[in-house]
Nucleic acid binder design. Structure first.
Lengths: 190, 190
DNA sequence: TCGCTTTTATGATATAGGTCAAAAATAAAT
DNA sequence: ATTTATTTTTGACCTATATCATAAAAGCGA
């Protein structure tokens, strides 16, 4: 679903409103592997992924890269806490393939929030969806075996599960990459 | 922090606005162990805990009670997805001690959202905070040892860690209650 | 197409923490 | 104040998965 459709599906904007809103965003194409936000820096923009996919990750105490979230086509991507509170980001944000995004700064977004109450609603809905997704993952991770976690991933994000490197997925699911490799090899032998 | 202070800290309401908003809420005292929402039912109200504490939990495949979240004094409590989307709740909501809450229905809240754009902002801020908290817990759970998870709990929710039963905390942290008991006995022997 | 780098697979071994069982301690009820 | 129920502790044992090591495969630049 493209950007305008995504917006209108959440809140019914008029054509004029929609145009004005779109004009506050900037469209940009981002090449594969580009880092949009660095850990410790402020996340200046909220991104909508028109085409492509990205992920957030951080480096743990052993400098190991841990995927925190995947963002697929048609989703908003940001280091939410950093963007909204202007705090240093705990995560890196990077694009995993050539992508097209719409981006907006906090200042411009605040202009939209002030101008259109419906935008506040949009913001609330988008964040509510994120919250639901994170809670779902949490429940999936918390008490399930590695096998079950991978099944959750296949069910919830089939597109991502088949496109992203095994190491990224393993860290996202909280398991060693060797474990995920073994799970997959079980699958293919049956 | 009490209800009015919490509201004005997030968004600067005028006295008149604040009064009007408060009038849409109902104050209620809830006795210990009362269940506010049942799994599978719609969560009809958003609660603010003026005094006391609650938790959300669900029963897993083995009918084991798993704590999903704790809500302390001064926090909003709800089965967010159920409340906002009018979907059956995945969780029970219960009060862990005699409490005083302010509650509001979705209908009345929508009236407030429509009337005061600032309320939309309030909603967005509250949910953003929840999102941040859940993401923090997810990171704590995903790659940390049982010991580290408990330390996270002590740091993040010291009040709760010392008041709630060991079994509730263990399931919240994704470990067997025996494990948490052993961790605690290590602590007290040093 | 060849060499170089990164990713994935597989085997051997170690361990954190789960499960089962039973006792001890606390809390609740009559 | 006793009994009953619930929660916590402790011990013995076991298993899923991490870790370490190395090989195979895939991807990529020159």
């Amino acid at each position: 679903m493209n950007f305008t459709d995504t917006l209108t599906a959440l809140v019914p904007f008029s054509d004029d409103e929609l145009n004005d809103i779109l004009n506050h965003f900037t469209m940009k194409s981002v090449p594969k592997n580009e880092t949009l936000v660095h850990q410790g820096k402020i996340c200046k923009y909220l991104y909508f992924i028109e085409q492509g996919m990205g992920r957030s990750y951080y480096l743990n105490d052993n400098q190991k890269d841990i995927t925190q979230w995947f963002f697929g086509t048609g989703k908003f991507m940001s280091s939410a806490d950093s963007f909204f509170q202007k705090k240093p980001s705990l995560y890196y944000l990077e694009v995993l393939e050539d992508s097209i995004v719409y981006l907006i700064s906090k200042e411009k977004l605040d202009v939209l929030f002030a101008k259109y109450p419906k935008m506040e609603k949009l913001g609330r809905l988008v964040i509510t969806e994120m919250l639901t997704n994170v809670v779902n993952k949490l429940n999936a991770i918390q008490f399930q075996t590695a096998r079950e976690r991978y099944d959750y991933m296949l069910a919830e994000f089939p597109d991502i599960a088949y496109q992203v490197s095994l190491g990224h997925i393993a860290s996202y699911l909280g398991m060693a990459q060797e474990t995920l490799s073994r799970i997959r090899s079980q699958d293919s032998s049956n």
